[in-house]
Design a binder for these strands. Structure first.
Length: 332
DNA sequence: GACGCGTGGAG
DNA sequence: TCTCCAAGCGT
């Protein structure tokens, strides 16, 4: 008797029960799109509240396209990778200019800003049933283990090989559900650290499990050394308002975000008292910030005063949020 | 191909 | 406390 296919095993497992995530209950390409962008390098748990708030605020591409960049960034603030939000808005504008309907084919979807191979395959398969296998971190891990393939997943050759395997596995009758099932398996069973092989529907045909190599796959060679940085953020408040500066439009990262000044950015400031410290990591940069209460005598060109209420309406950096929490001006 | 980009959770 | 990394993309 022929062994059941990967797709059959996987879909049977998936249909038996999976996490109830809000974007699973829709085929609206706009909602699928927003969820896929938010999920890039971001855990589902972190995405859920942002997804729901974002869609209430921008329920369709037209609403998103007509919003200001600051409004969109404010809704994204805290989620990270802010280029995603800028690209999302730009893509919505492009969609609205070209008729207002979300593209239905892989190629035009792939051509939108912020959409790469993964996201195009995810949207095309989930929203439109197109036969494209997704290749994300979950799929790479599952394929590496089932095939017991120790290729470096940062290399293009390995990724092409893995993509071919996922394409072989793909269930042509429901590519979208198959893709989600494969990613769900990676997210909940075929875990990076501690794979739950005992409950895995693919364990019978998993070569890494047979060889005992699951925990060391997939192989990723490159590694960036962390850099430790110490700095100070100044909290200047006066009459219930706090002094903030805005990053330049051209800044490489977090452009247009409002943040607290460092001492060198506010030369006239006088430190009154150190209120505390906190840590924050941005990619491989590990910051330790001291939070200092400070005062200024003169007016501060390029700065603006914000109330706590106003801060909810602007893109506010997470370092500023953490520092203002240390200063007990906002609640974390 | 290698980097840079945010954040918070898990172990 | 520290490391690793989670539904990637653009340069």
């Amino acid at each position: 008797m022929k062994a059941p296919s990967v797709a059959r095993l996987l879909l049977a497992w998936y249909r038996k029960g999976h996490r109830d995530l809000p974007w699973r209950s829709t085929k609206d390409p706009y909602r699928i799109w927003v969820s896929e962008i938010m999920l890039q390098q971001t855990r589902a748990q972190a995405v859920i509240p942002y997804y729901e708030r974002f869609l209430r605020r921008f329920p369709n591409p037209q609403a998103l396209a007509s919003a200001s960049e600051d409004e969109v960034l404010a809704a994204w603030s805290g989620l990270g990778y802010y280029a995603r939000a800028r690209n999302l808005r730009r893509a919505a504008q492009r969609i609205c200019v070209t008729g207002g309907d979300f593209p239905r084919e892989y190629e035009p979807i792939r051509a939108l800003p912020g959409i790469g191979d993964y996201t195009a395959a995810a949207i095309a398969s989930i929203a439109f049933g197109a036969r494209h296998a997704v290749l994300d971190g979950n799929v790479l891990r599952v394929v590496a283990r089932v095939e017991n393939d120790s290729g470096d997943i940062a290399s293009a050759r390995t990724r092409e090989r893995f993509r071919a395997v996922a394409g072989e596995w793909l269930d042509p009758s429901d590519p979208g559900e198959f893709n989600q099932a494969l990613m769900e398996l990676g997210a909940t069973v075929c875990l990076a650290k501690n794979p739950l092989c005992l409950v895995c529907p693919l364990s019978e045909r998993c070569r890494a499990r047979a060889e005992g190599t699951a925990h060391q796959l997939p192989v990723k060679l490159r590694k960036v050394e962390p850099v430790h940085i110490q700095s100070t953020l100044l909290v200047v408040h006066r009459g219930g308002r706090v002094l903030l500066r805005q990053r330049e439009r051209e800044a490489r990262r977090m452009a247009r975000f409002w943040e607290l000044p460092a001492p060198e950015q506010l030369p006239g400031a006088r430190v009154v008292e150190i209120l505390g410290t906190f840590r924050h990591t941005i990619t491989h940069h590990r910051y330790t910030f001291a939070v200092a209460q400070a005062s200024v005598s003169a007016r501060c060109a390029g700065f603006r005063w914000f109330t706590v209420r106003q801060m909810r309406e602007i893109p506010l950096s997470t370092t500023a949020r953490k520092a203002l929490a240390v200063a007990k001006i906002i609640v974390p």
